[in-house]
């Protein structure tokens, strides 16, 4: 193997013992060099971890560089497009005043609305997906309500629950609750009937089949549904904080708009993005922990 790699000349440059070099050594013996790139673009095939991570970092860095260049080029007034440096500076000032408070207020709202929606939406979705009678009753009305824009409920929420925390949580709740129901019902319906039949022939009652087969079987996709909906909950935050808030990230963004403080708008959006990413990582990690057979 080694002597072959050396004999191949150019292939030895990458060091004869890295997998890539070995790969190349074998490849160049059988195929033309042009084929080398193709392994990265094979349908649904995994690629080396190093390449993956590099691409992920590039995905962040390239837009950042583009932003930096664009804001410095003078093509766009910095009033509308601040430089990354401005945004960091503004973020720093914010960090020394009310950032912690704003962040905490927003997290509490998003998590409250989301948890409430999940606690009610998941069981309802499970029942809709399991029983045709429940589906018949809830699904059409749910599909109807689901298309109503959450923002349009703001005036109603103010009338009903006032301008306190309740209405803000309610907006986030409305934003994700109906989606969770549909998505959960869908994955529950996809639990193979043969699993259910197998459990029945082992002596399972309907309740046991629901608990031990349908619930357990749809748990992995269910965690993914929660992950996606947590993202959506954050997108409803700004809408929710349009309602008479005096702190919160969404509130700060709206406030900054009033004073043409684009740096703060950028900083706020980026911070929400980072927090969202952290929640996403949490759910991914949870998935890994809970469902080892899928990883």
């Amino acid at each position: 193997m080694k002597s072959q790699a050396i004999a191949q000349g150019p292939a030895a440059h990458a060091g004869p013992d890295t997998p890539r070099a070995r790969d190349r050594a074998v490849k160049s013996a059988t195929a033309r060099p042009a084929v080398r790139r193709r392994p990265l673009l094979r349908l649904q095939q995994s690629i080396p971890r190093k390449v993956y991570v590099t691409l992920s970092i590039l995905g962040f860095v390239l837009p950042l560089v583009a932003w930096e260049l664009l804001s410095r080029s003078g093509l766009i007034d910095t009033m509308f497009l601040p430089t990354p440096g401005d945004v960091i500076e503004q973020g720093w000032t914010w960090a020394h005043s009310s950032l912690a408070q704003d962040t905490w207020a927003s997290i509490v709202r998003v998590v409250s609305g989301f948890v409430l929606a999940a606690c009610l939406g998941v069981p309802l979705g499970v029942f809709i997906g399991s029983f045709k009678a429940v589906e018949g009753f809830f699904q059409p009305i749910n599909d109807f309500v689901r298309y109503m824009p959450a923002a349009a409920f703001i005036p109603l929420m103010i009338l009903w629950v006032g301008i306190g925390e309740g209405s803000k949580i309610a907006i986030i709740f409305i934003g994700v609750f109906f989606q969770i129901i549909v998505m959960v019902a869908d994955v529950v319906r996809q639990v193979p009937g043969s699993w259910l039949e197998a459990s029945y022939t082992l002596g399972a009652t309907r309740g046991e089949a629901l608990r031990l087969v349908i619930w357990r079987g749809s748990l992995p996709p269910l965690i993914n549904i929660l992950r996606v909906n947590m993202g959506w909950a954050w997108t409803y935050l700004v809408v929710a904080e349009m309602v008479a808030a005096n702190k919160g990230l969404g509130y700060a963004i709206l406030q900054a708009q009033r004073f043409m403080n684009t740096s703060t708008i950028f900083a706020g959006i980026l911070i929400i993005g980072v927090i969202g990413l952290l929640f996403d990582l949490f759910f991914r990690q949870l998935h890994r922990r809970l469902f080892p057979w899928l990883h």
Binding site: P192, S194, W195, E197, A198, R216, G217, L219, F291, W293
Partner: peptide, 9 residues
């Protein structure tokens, strides 16, 4: 059953 019906979890 003919097809595999073990519970994957």
């Amino acid at each position: 059953f003919q097809h595999y019906t073990l519970f994957p979890w």
